[in-house]
């Protein structure tokens, strides 16, 4: 709307390969995570580590392919640059608060001795459990 001619029409030409490749790779990573969980015989801990790695890879991929991570340096616009940097820092802060905060709150005090939580710890130790749940998929 503000500058109808430049930004909009320039980006609309041709096939957006960056987005297409990013999209396909995202689907591949998700499918791989599902395959590792359901079809391999690894322990629960190993499965968790592998799918976490896939998750981080996919997050990085999406930031690069879809989220204009590198745009600020291209345009050399100070407000855009500052907004981008601030945005990424704030997003990192919120992500840490959500993940670390939840782990801390859910694992503290007598929530830790909560019945269901104990069940889960139990499951984690006998790491064949998860496979047994999904045995029919094999």
């Amino acid at each position: 709307m503000a500058n109808p001619q430049d930004s909009l029409s320039r980006e609309h030409g041709g096939i957006p390969w960056k987005h297409v490749i990013g999209y396909i790779l995202s689907i591949v990573l998700t499918a791989l995570a599902l395959w590792v969980t359901f079809e391999t015989g690894f322990s629960t801990r190993t499965i968790l580590i592998i799918i976490f790695i896939f998750a981080f890879l996919q997050a990085a991929l999406q930031l690069l392919m879809f989220m204009h991570m590198t745009e600020s340096s291209e345009k050399n616009n100070t407000l855009t640059g500052k907004t981008q940097t601030g945005n990424i820092l704030f997003a990192a802060f919120i992500a840490i608060v959500i993940v670390a905060g939840s782990v801390w709150v859910m694992g503290a005090g007598h929530a830790k001795h909560d019945h269901h939580k104990m069940e889960m710890d139990h499951d984690m130790k006998m790491d064949g459990d998860m496979k047994m749940d999904h045995g029919d998929h094999k």
Binding site: F90, I98, G101, V105, A111, D114
Partner: peptide, 22 residues
């Protein structure tokens, strides 16, 4: 804007997450 993400537990103080968290 940032700080509003740091107070959520006060909605369930009685859940049993212990005195340090509370």
């Amino acid at each position: 804007a940032g700080y509003s993400f740091l107070v959520w537990v006060h909605h369930f103080f009685t859940m049993g997450q212990g005195e340090l968290v509370n």
